[in-house]
Design a protein around this nucleic acid. Structure first.
Length: 669
RNA sequence: GCGCCCGUAGCUCAGUGGAUAGAGCAUCCGCCUUCUAAGCGGACGGUCGCUGGUUCGAUUCCAGCCGGGCGCGCCA
């Protein structure tokens, strides 16, 4: 409706009743809404707010403004206006409205590449840059289901923002630094002495082919033992201190090198990072994301980055681990020095802290009492780096709501350090992934306690279910060469859509049955409606090419039966023939789509797009059934052409929406 | 105890201060010779947690309570 509202408001503003009441197009557009029942009208003007401004009773304004309404030409969008209490119910020239909507979609969605379907795009963000922190898993821990949230919510926001004209830099703030790595190194050396020996001997791959699960288990085992044993805890702290000293010496800091011990720890850490990334890559590829190490060193990508930065940042997110700010930029120590010099930081209980919210609230910790930097410093460094390097207008962090306090402190600290742009930092919080325990209660997931479900297992399970359903419902396709690609797209899409369809702040109670339920408001349902629309387009082309079909005029045959698949010039379709209430319902939803994308962008809320698609797909399916008898592509050639225009529009809006959410499309399923 | 998030149908959730609060799942009843039934229609299902307040009007805004979740100084 949004793309119709301004045109309608302009028409109404020219009406004597509205003009006499001093209502301009802007004011009218703001108060247009859809009546609860279609028989009341196609659109309604609510008089509450304008009446208040004019010191009138809403009912009075409604009857005054509606009086003397005279429709313009027969092309005018508004056909009649009738006061109904505090509302003015409007009836539209649906044919004109339909034509308006379809033309808007057709001119912005040329071709078959969903990335070029620009309906719903805007130039709101032109020239602006958003740096968005997404996914950000910890090294040496496997990706579990809850990592899906940050990854896919972040990725969807990235794509939605890009559709609004923004340059969006996706940053994977890998948890690859911190005292935990001291425990891991100490554990590896304790339980697998040969690893320590290989590292000391200069082996660049001291861990062999150890899996991330094994690394995690080693960490967990050592962590548990060191709780009982202070010597082990001390060993962990030492290993990390040595690692940090080694890296700081590498970048020419003030600290002395840590010798062979430091080199060995560095090798273990680097290999841990490599092994972890290799495993993450597999998952990201599944989900359709691509990450590059930052800074970009390989020539091919560096060229793209230099020549076409927008393309580069659109196609790739970046790995910028926490260690980057320690190892490459030395930003951490400079921030600490700066904070001390400006008396923002102070010493407290042996640590260096910033009291961001007064003395009675826990402070933000810069340096711990063992001399190691805390992750807060690295987050400060990351924010400053992102703002400086990418000239970011906004910094967004897609991180779970349990870290809300951390980000409040972080942004406040940035402000205290003199960065006035801290007000442009946003924590895009999302709800926790909860698992049902044996006692029936729901609790936060824990990789350590083994209650988390591995992301890979979930995706595999979803793809497997899709394969089974495909084998039962579409055996021919299941046996074809496309089967695996389609099963992947539909299965992964099911998991992704399931995660994005609800408001991001809600906690998610993980439920296998719900994730693998492919009926109703599900990813496969969305894909299915998209596939149906494609089938109709193919059917239409066949019908036009069929010489026995005498009802189709000759020009149909030449015009539509050839050419690239699904690429049809439908301008001859007469929108006035779309007279079914189901068709009008769809046209309204199509018209609403751009506003949904814009709002999703503003509110960092992909579920708004997902909901718009659920509504559109539902209305489409209802229409599909309502046309069972006449068919969409039926006996009446001109009616069929008009309906095919609608099918084409639905397909492209659905397809665009799904790709905005980070899903891949399929033509059959 | 303090702070933040949440509370809408049996379950999972939409709902931008406005007309009679909507979906999906589950249950029950119908609908496949046709462009894919991963579908469609219908039935059943609500003191919008409670109590006040603001407002012409509150599920929506405010306050207090109740219930659930998360966080609260050296994990990230």
């Amino acid at each position: 409706m949004e793309i119709l509202k301004s045109a309608i408001a302009t028409e109404l503003a020219a009406q004597s009743g509205f003009a006499a009441a001093g209502l301009d197009a802007q004011k009218i557009a703001e108060n247009l809404s859809r009546p609860p029942k279609p028989e009341m009208g196609d659109l309604a003007f609510g008089c509450f707010k304008p009446a208040k401004d004019l010191n009138l009773k809403p009912n009075e304004l409604a009857s005054r403004a509606a009086t003397g309404f005279a429709p313009g030409s027969h092309h005018a969008l508004v056909q009649s206006a009738q006061a109904a209490g505090p509302y003015i119910n409007l009836r539209l020239n649906r044919a004109a409205a339909a034509s308006h909507v379809l033309a808007a979609i057709e001119t912005t969605t040329v071709g078959q590449d969903p990335e070029q379907w620009r309906f719903g795009n805007s130039d709101e963000g032109d020239g602006k840059t958003l740096v968005i922190d997404l996914s950000s898993p910890n090294i040496a821990k496997p990706l579990a289901v809850h990592h899906l949230r940050s990854t896919m919510i972040g990725y969807a926001i990235k794509r939605i923002r890009e559709a609004q004209g923004w340059r969006v830099v996706g940053v994977n703030h890998l948890g690859d630094w911190g005292t935990g790595f001291g425990k891991l190194i100490a554990g590896l050396k304790k339980y697998f002495p040969e690893i320590g020996k290989r590292a000391e001997a200069g082996d660049a791959k001291p861990l062999g082919d150890m899996s991330v699960a094994e690394l995690n288990a080693t960490y967990a085992r050592f962590s548990a033992e060191s709780k009982e044993n202070e010597d082990l805890a001390e060993a962990g702290r030492t290993e990390f201190a040595v690692l940090e000293q080694h890296i700081e010496a590498l970048i020419g800091g003030t600290r002395a090198a840590a010798g062979a011990h430091g080199e060995a720890n560095f090798r273990i850490w680097q290999h841990t990072r490599e092994l972890s990334l290799a495993e993450f890559e597999r998952m990201y590829a599944h989900l359709g994301l691509s990450f590059h190490q930052w800074p970009v060193v390989d020539q091919q990508h560096a060229r793209v980055l230099n020549a076409q930065p927008d393309n580069f940042y659109r196609d790739h997110c970046l790995y910028v681990g926490e260690s980057y700010y320690v190892a490459a930029e030395d930003l951490c120590r400079r921030i600490i020095a700066d904070a001390v010099a400006n008396k923002v930081a102070e010493e407290s209980e042996g640590a260096l802290v910033i009291f961001t919210h007064g003395k009675d609230k826990p402070p933000l910790m810069l340096v711990k009492d063992d001399g190691a930097t805390s992750y807060h410093v690295r987050d400060l460094a990351a924010a400053i780096y992102r703002h400086r390097h990418w000239h970011a207008n906004e910094l967004a962090y897609v991180v779970g709501g349990e870290q809300k306090w951390h980000f409040e402190q972080l942004f406040k600290a940035l402000g205290l350090l003199g960065h006035e742009w801290s007000s442009q930092c946003m924590h895009i919080e999302f709800g926790l992934m909860m698992f049902q325990q044996a006692d029936g209660k729901w609790a936060k997931t824990s990789t350590r306690r083994g209650t988390a479900i591995m992301l890979e297992d979930l995706l595999d399970e979803a793809v497997k279910s899709v394969r089974e359903i495909m084998a039962a419902k579409n055996p021919e396709l299941a046996a074809s060469a496309d089967a695996e690609r389609i099963a992947n797209a539909v299965g992964v899409g099911a998991v992704v859509f399931n995660d994005l369809k609800n408001g991001r702040r809600n906690n998610v109670k993980f439920d296998w049955d719900a994730v693998l339920d492919f009926e109703g408001e599900s990813g496969p349902y969305m894909q299915y409606q998209f596939v149906r629309m494609g089938s109709v387009l193919n059917k239409f082309k066949q019908a036009c090419g069929n010489l026995d079909n005498h009802d189709y005029p000759p020009y149909f045959k030449t015009r539509y039966s050839s050419g690239p698949d699904l690429d049809l010039d439908l301008s001859a379709g007469d929108a006035a023939l779309l007279a079914l209430p189901e068709e009008w319902a769809i046209l309204q939803l199509l018209a609403d789509f751009p506003a949904a994308v814009a709002r999703a962008s503003r509110e960092y809320e992909p579920s708004i797009v997902a909901r718009a698609l659920i509504d559109l797909a539902g209305a489409t399916s209802t229409w599909w059934s309502a046309t069972k008898d006449t068919r969409i592509v039926g006996e009446n050639a001109n009616l069929s052409l008009a309906r095919v225009r609608l099918v084409n529009a639905i397909r492209k809006v659905l397809g665009r929406g799904l790709t905005l959410l980070g899903m891949s499309l399929v033509e059959r399923m």
